[in-house]
Each structure stands twice: as structure tokens, then as C-alpha cells.
């Protein structure tokens, strides 16, 4: 992405006299980059689906950790190969915005789950019959 602000000028000039291979322009990515990302994504999608559908691992906790872990890895793969994230694009502002958002998302998710779980755990236990008769 580093070279992208002047990329359009480059392409207009490039169209006429040389068929450029798209390999060096990080703004649009390269064929190799997209294919690498695609193959990695397919693998990282297939494994969690296979784990859950076949029940290959007895431990539910381990399966859950693997599913979420592989999901996180796949998000990073997409960020790098499809969204072309790198620490230099736009003078580092995109990565700063991304880090800030990740921090916010972390606080939001972890905070909500933590607090609401504790609220739940501190409620009086209810039987299904009591639930049905609730107003």
C-alpha cells in the first residue's frame, strides 16, 4: 500500500507501453498474494468445520479453543493478503486505527461477557417451572 497514492498515475502511464505484471504494486496486491491468502483461508476454514462436524476431538473445550484460535489466525491472514494491511500504509495511520479498534473490541467483548457472566452467576437459581411462571 506504500506506493498507492501515486499508483493511478503510474498505471495510466503504464498501460500504453508495458504490460505490468501487477506483482510489485502492493495497493492492488499480487496474484501470488491473493492465491496465498485464498489457499490459507480455505485450509483455515476447512479445519474448524471438520473438527466440529466430525467431532474428531473428544474434549469440547479443546475443540472450542482450536475453532476460535484458527478463526483469529484467518482474520490475520485476510488482513494481510486481502486488505493489504502493513505498518507503513498511510504513514502508519491505518495500523494505528486498527490497533485502537482491536483494543476497544477487546474491552467491549471481554467486559460484556465477564460482567454479564458474573451477574448471571450471582442470580438465584431458577427451575424451568419457575421460568415458565415468570410474568
Amino acid at each position: 500500500m506504500s506506493s498507492h497514492p501515486h499508483a493511478p498515475a503510474h498505471h495510466n502511464a503504464g498501460d500504453t507501453h508495458h504490460g505490468h505484471d501487477g506483482g510489485h504494486d502492493a495497493a492492488h496486491g499480487s496474484f501470488k498474494g491473493y492465491m496465498t491468502g485464498f489457499v490459507l483461508s480455505v485450509i483455515l476454514t476447512a479445519i474448524p468445520f471438520w473438527l466440529v462436524m466430525s467431532g474428531a476431538i473428544d474434549s469440547k473445550l479443546l475443540t472450542a479453543v482450536l475453532v476460535m484460535g484458527l478463526g483469529a489466525v484467518q482474520i490475520v491472514v485476510h488482513m494481510i493478503y486481502f486488505l493489504h494491511m502493513n505498518p507503513r500504509s498511510e504513514g502508519g495511520w491505518t495500523i494505528m486505527a486498527l490497533i485502537f479498534t482491536i483494543v476497544l473490541v477487546g474491552i467491549l467483548l471481554a467486559g460484556s461477557l465477564w460482567i454479564m457472566h458474573h451477574l448471571n452467576a450471582n442470580m438465584m437459581p431458577m427451575s424451568p417451572e419457575m421460568m415458565k411462571n415468570m410474568p
Binding site: 499508483a7 498505471h11 495510466n12 503504464g14 498501460d15 504490460g19 505490468h20 501487477g22 504494486d25 495497493a27 492492488h28 496486491g29 499480487s30 496474484f31 491473493y34 492465491m35 491468502g37 485464498f38 483461508s41 480455505v42 476454514t45 485476510h78 486481502f82
Partner: peptide, 20 residues
């Protein structure tokens, strides 16, 4: 799979766009 395919095909569109 459909969404993943659409991602890679959009990538191809961008590569052709870069070539004009």
C-alpha cells in the same frame, strides 16, 4: 465458501483493474 470465493474473485478484478 461462497463468500470466500467472492473475495478471491474481487481480488482478480482488482488485479485486472491495475492492468487497465
Amino acid at each position: 465458501a461462497m463468500l470466500l470465493f467472492s473475495s478471491i474473485t474481487y481480488g482478480f478484478a482488482m488485479l485486472w483493474m491495475a492492468r487497465g
